[in-house]
Design a protein around this nucleic acid. Structure first.
Lengths: 229, 229
DNA sequence: AAATCGCCTTGACTTAGGTCAAAAAGCCTT
DNA sequence: AAGGCTTTTTGACCTAAGTCAAGGCGATTT
């Protein structure tokens, strides 16, 4: 597929002219990462940012003892690694492919030039960063002010919302990743799922989870977190 | 003092022309908030953003049970409340004056117009948001991957760094606020300070803290967090 | 000087959730 | 079908940090 038409499918580049797409196509690099491969590491210098074309990847922090906190899981169309482009210097976290991935890479200098010339691109990028800030705000709230069952309940409701409001949701990531995304460890997640089943809040069978008591989950989650962003 | 000259002192507006300052001066509103007053609340619609002119304020989240997590403490020259300007709609957190404050308010529509016309303003704003993202990343890391003593150690080292590397640092906020900033409660903070004294890491007398064993603190903090941003 | 209010500390207690270890399920691959 | 993975679950145990309650310590007001 031709690159310009793929660029048009990226929300960040919405509203740009044909000429802009040509400019972008001229600076973009097309990269592939295999499952498990590191895309970049915390502390590394970043001289450009990325957009996911296909596949999924995680952005995460690692503690000295090896515990992992996932900040985001990104899929097709989502930009990542933008912080060093504008705040100078280094990546604040790590990125690793969860599946085989194809990504576009936009080198910093050329992209900044483009932004200078293109107010709507600048505004789109401001929107992306602002949404991320809002998202982080929710994650911080979760980590600091809620307990694990509350975060899990919020996540299940969010999934249900994503999946057309169905009561039968399917986890789109393995449970060990989910644990890391919720700021806990697999053992704890497992126990809490078991407890929720015992309490009649949900039923589960592998990655398929049935929401039995929506009210109950909402009470745990205090509704509102994990909005669609 | 004339407003345009005060605008020039705000890093966000660095590098703008005289004409730009005039434009900004034309749209800015000058507001005052007294200590303890709410500047905005989570969920409220935001149709503009702010810059602190004088005084300090906190940006924070509140749990249902009343526990508070401070996200930022801002002082003179720092912009805040920008998220709703670019990501549409509502404030993701609360803002309250810690002291009597004077702030500038820039209405959204006019400001967005200005940004469209002014690439360097756009880039400055992108830098501000990116730095914030990096900061949040550190806070998330702290909350999820470090224990309270580690966060406190990091904070003390950060303070020392701020205060010209001196071994005698002075807390610039009361301890109950510090607790909330570190994601804990005053009792726990108090106990951990006591323990650090017992272990010979620090000495303390009210808000004056003397770093006795810098190495030891660094080991706790795993160095690197709470950078000057 | 007494009273009051906000801030800080300390003690006794409880608990969410982490660690370690082992077993059980699911899977791919050969 | 049989290993050899990884993922998930379970159990026993431990500990960081929160809750509740009581004082202490200043600073400011009356």
């Amino acid at each position: 597929m031709k690159i310009p038409s793929q660029l048009a499918a990226i929300p960040l580049f919405e509203g740009l002219s044909e000429e802009n797409y040509a400019d972008l196509a001229a600076i973009v690099l097309d990269k592939v990462f295999h499952k498990g491969q590191t895309i970049f590491s915390e502390g590394e210098e970043g001289n450009g940012f990325y957009v996911v074309v296909a596949g999924r990847l995680k952005i995460f922090k690692l503690s000295r003892e090896g515990k992992e906190q996932i900040l985001h899981i990104f899929g097709a169309g989502e930009p990542f690694g933008e912080v060093p482009v504008f705040a100078g210097q280094r990546f604040p976290a790590n990125a690793e492919a969860l599946e085989d991935c194809r990504v576009f890479f936009f080198p910093r200098a050329a992209f900044v030039e483009l932004i200078k010339r293109n107010p709507s691109l600048a505004l789109n990028m401001l929107a992306v960063l602002s949404r991320r800030l809002r998202q982080f705000t929710l994650l911080i709230e979760d980590l600091s002010l809620k307990e694990v069952p509350g975060r899990l309940a919020a996540y299940l409701l969010y999934l249900s919302h994503q999946q057309a409001g169905s009561d039968e949701v399917e986890l789109d990531i393995p449970k060990n990743l989910l644990a890391s995304l919720l700021g806990t460890i697999p053992e704890t997640l497992s126990r809490i799922l078991a407890r929720m089943i015992r309490q009649g809040l949900i039923e589960a069978e592998g990655p398929r989870i049935k929401i039995v008591d929506r009210q109950g989950l909402q009470a745990l989650a205090v509704v509102g977190s994990y909005r669609s962003t």
